[in-house]
Design a protein around this nucleic acid. Structure first.
Lengths: 142, 142
DNA sequence: CATAATTCATTGACCTGTCAACCAATAAGG
DNA sequence: CCTTATTGGTTGACAGGTCAATGAATTATG
């Protein structure tokens, strides 16, 4: 049985180093952190959204959401107000300025991702989605 | 032209959420953080190693290395001493206790990784390495 | 209806990474 | 030599995530 693990470990390392490399590049080229853009993107389609909904969508801790939104509010990208029908929830929405900026940010993101996958063929992409999904399930079961 | 980006974006999201999911599971099951185990693993084969070498191998910031090693020292896993031939460098090595614990940690890691890739066939693994490597190159060129 | 349980958001403490500034020690060059 | 890089390590400040505790508002229940 010729060396079974090294290949696995190699993928493991690759995965880690790849995703470590992605964030800073993304932030430098798109001019916003991936997480913040995801938050904004959620706001883009819909109208007002509650923080708890945002949190579920973006899947980070509520504390992080609170802080990001505070920052985005200070930047004038979003506004927040209490839901009059339920004073626990705060509703978040894009400002006009925010809405204006998002289109170009998303464009940059598309370019970024295009470049990232530029050398991956369509068949490979399908296979990749498949594998990553299976790995995600494997992880979940641990 | 039917929707070119969604698939790319899906992979992008998958990658992020997968690697986000991996670390905490790893830490819970292997009982040490991936980074720390990588540091210890470097120490395992060789004898004494300088921090700067460790840093290059593990590829994280020197400040993080300093703090991890401080922690590992307090745990009694490693010792550090100045290199008498060059007083700038500090040489790191495993303690006996540390060396004793590593074998089982590495075993846990192997198990963890095995499970992670359990549903990925050998051919797929090869293809995956290939794709991830290309993506890494793409990133580098941005 | 009054009390108990749940939900939402916030805060504080911690972890692990980044970068920038710094000090000490060594190496290189005039 | 003496001065000027350069290198190795530490520290402080920041970013962005975690968890745990808290307070306020709402919902469920005896």
């Amino acid at each position: 049985m010729p060396e079974q693990y090294p290949e696995e470990e190699q993928i493991f390392e690759l995965l880690q180093s790849l995703s470590k490399a992605i964030s800073p590049k993304f932030e430098r080229l798109v001019n916003i952190s991936p997480t913040r853009l995801r938050l904004l993107h959620e706001l883009y389609d819909g109208d007002e959204i509650s923080q708890s909904f945002l949190q579920k969508e973006v899947d980070i801790d509520g504390a992080a959401v609170t802080r990001h939104l505070k920052g985005l509010e200070e930047c004038g990208m979003i506004t927040r107000r209490n839901n009059p029908e339920d004073n626990r929830v705060t509703l978040v929405s894009l400002t006009e300025a925010g809405r204006g900026r998002i289109a170009s940010l998303c464009e940059e993101k598309k370019n970024f991702i295009s470049n990232l996958f530029s050398s991956i063929t369509p068949e490979e992409r399908t296979a990749l989605i498949d594998m990553l999904t299976r790995m995600q399930q494997n992880i979940k079961q641990l």
